[in-house]
Nucleic acid binder design. Structure first.
Length: 570
DNA sequence: GAGTTTGAAACT
DNA sequence: CAGTTTCAAACTC
């Protein structure tokens, strides 16, 4: 048992160096400093890293190692006047660190949340209560976390600088048994395709327990279970019995339901994600498949009865939190309740409120509209160019018969500048190389023309559909009118249509948000069977009825917008 | 706060 | 590798 103190392990090479670290504390019994020893297998080369206000953070060895280049290996830290904030994290000597892929460092939840007060302010990290292990075995959370005991309630603690020698022996012994003993137990799964991960969650990498749990009686729904404690689903690595810690399990849902029913902030906290997910997340419509279902549960009566009823989203929310260093979570208020439902507000994943509104075909259709307009514009401008060239030629023959190269002389914005833009845009629209001599962008040009020619915004009746526009185009517009008006008009139409689409999206998103808010309130009254993946109650009619769904070509609110006809002539 | 339960770690 | 023991956290009362 206590071989480690019988000299069974290689003698330490640099105890004197470590002794310099020991000087740091004037409180031998309970060190104020926590240290991570980045010896990387070289005993004695202790690297102390000060982490202001990052008290409970474990630093990934691979990452820290790079900092060894800039930090003195023997640097002696001055104890901070605020020892609770000045944390020295001591990394355990690693054996063959680079074998494993980079892993998110996730500490057991008990360690995570314990560093935070309920109001989110950092407080003293977890204090162990070891009595028989001298805090030199993995039983001790401090030791397992690679930190010195500091203010713990342990007895006969050797996990401090005063007992660095025995501690280091214990570390080596532990590493001898398990080289990954001090590595995070939870790692993002490097396996599986992105689709698979998306299937299981929201496109996030799913953390899972490296070794897996072996629970028998807790159903993996108590903090006895390391997976549950880390807020992750049990995985194929687990060998647990009667596991209920899989996505979709009702008992598990019950744990999470209590918290999320009262938490609307998570919607707002992740609202930004909605922007980027708004389109892509539409692919998440299909329920994620639980990959953690154990064979014995697949046929058990406790299996999911309602496949729609799932809180897998919440699970992934928790996983996100688990993936974030605790120090980064300190700003998130955390409540600590013995129930798993309040394992602390997890940073949620957010499924866009627009996820079901914007469809891929909508985007394609919108693109088609733009393409159509672009083609029409190209056609118009091409025709205009031809006409102007012919006219210029004719004019040149009349005025400068001996002139060499013909050139359109701009006379004003609506003609000359546009002529320049014609050259530029022509090649651009055709997909050819863009003219480098184009001085003004089409947008700028359009704005300039807008400024100078306000007639089309008020007086001129804009073409209400592309057909009329095309007709206008096919029949050469009268010179002096078309070139100055059609191009900005085209652009105006496109921009207006895009604006209308965005407005509609905003409106629909707001509608859905309101319904989502109602759902959150409703879930308090026990209606769980109709919660969809993004938290929208299905009993409420979907916010975007088919006729309301954002369609680049149809928006009821926009009657002036020209109808959109896809390029295929439909 | 004491006692019990639980599962990881340690050990055989 | 499997079974047993030890241990400390989680949980219950």
């Amino acid at each position: 048992m206590e071989k480690i103190e019988e000299g069974h392990f290689p003698p330490k090479k640099a105890e004197s160096e470590l002794a310099s670290v020991q000087v740091e504390t004037d409180n031998p019994a309970k060190k104020l400093a926590r240290q991570l020893d980045f010896t990387g297998g070289v005993p004695g080369q202790a690297l102390t890293v000060s982490l202001q206000e990052h008290a409970n953070q474990i630093i990934q060895p691979e990452v820290i190692k790079s900092s060894q280049l800039t930090v003195s290996m023997k640097s002696t830290q001055v104890i901070s006047p605020q020892p609770q904030l000045q944390q020295h994290i001591l990394l355990m000597p690693m054996q063959q660190a680079p074998v494993l892929p980079p892993q998110p460092l996730i500490r057991p939840l008990s360690m995570q949340s314990s560093s935070e007060a309920k109001d989110g302010t950092p407080k003293k990290p977890k204090q162990c209560n070891c009595k028989h292990s001298r805090c030199l075995k993995l039983y001790c959370e401090c030791f397992a976390s690679g930190i010195f005991c500091d203010g713990c309630n342990c007895a006969n603690c050797h996990n401090n600088v005063e007992n660095e020698a025995s501690r280091e022996e214990a570390v080596e012994a532990t590493l001898e048994r398990n080289p990954n003993a001090f590595r995070p137990k939870i790692a993002s799964s490097p396996h599986g395709t992105r689709e698979e991960r998306e299937e299981a969650g929201d496109g996030l990498v799913l953390p899972k327990h490296n070794k897996g749990c072996h629970c028998k009686k807790s159903g993996c729904l108590k903090k006895y279970c390391e997976c549950f404690q880390a807020n992750i689903l049990c995985s194929e690595n687990c060998r647990c019995m009667d596991c209920k810690n899989f996505e979709g399990n009702e008992e598990r849902q019950a744990h999470f339901h209590g918290y999320h029913a009262n938490n609307m902030a998570y919607l707002q906290q992740t609202a930004n994600v909605a922007i980027t997910d708004a389109i892509g997340s539409s692919g998440y419509g299909s329920p994620p498949v639980n990959k953690n279902r154990k064979p014995q549960e697949l046929f058990s009566g406790s299996m999911i009865k309602d496949p729609v009823h799932r809180l897998g989203q919440f699970q992934q929310e928790n996983q996100i939190k688990a993936s974030v260093p605790p120090s980064l979570l300190s700003s998130i208020p955390s409540t600590r309740v013995s129930n798993a439902a309040a394992l602390g507000p997890p940073k949620p994943t957010y499924r866009s409120l627009l996820a079901d509104i914007i469809q891929n075909h909508d985007i394609k259709e919108l693109c088609s509209v733009l393409i159509v307009y672009a083609q029409e514009a190209a056609k118009i401008l091409s025709d205009e160019k031809d006409a102007s060239l012919k006219q210029a030629k004719h004019h040149r023959k009349a005025s400068y018969p001996s002139s060499g190269v013909g050139k359109v002389v701009p006379d004003d914005c609506s003609t000359g500048i546009q002529a320049e833009s014609i050259r530029g845009d022509e090649s651009r629209l055709d997909g050819a190389d863009v003219s480098a001599e184009r001085p003004i962008s089409p947008g700028t040009l359009a704005l300039m023309c807008d400024e100078q020619d306000t007639t089309f915004t008020a007086a001129a009746a804009p073409p209400n559909d592309l057909t009329s526009l095309s007709n206008n185009t096919s029949s050469q517009p009268p010179h002096g009118q078309g070139r100055a008006e059609i191009y900005p008009e085209l652009e105006r139409i496109v921009l207006a249509q895009t604006r209308d689409c965005l407005k509609k999206l905003i409106t629909l998103g707001e509608i859905k948000e309101k319904k989502c808010s109602l759902m959150v309130r409703d879930t308090d009254s026990g209606r769980q069977n109709n919660v969809s993946s993004n938290g929208v109650v299905n009993t409420v009619p979907p916010p975007p009825p088919p006729q309301q769904k954002v369609d680049s070509g149809t928006t009821a609110a926009n009657t002036t917008r020209p109808k959109v006809h896809p390029p295929d002539g439909k």
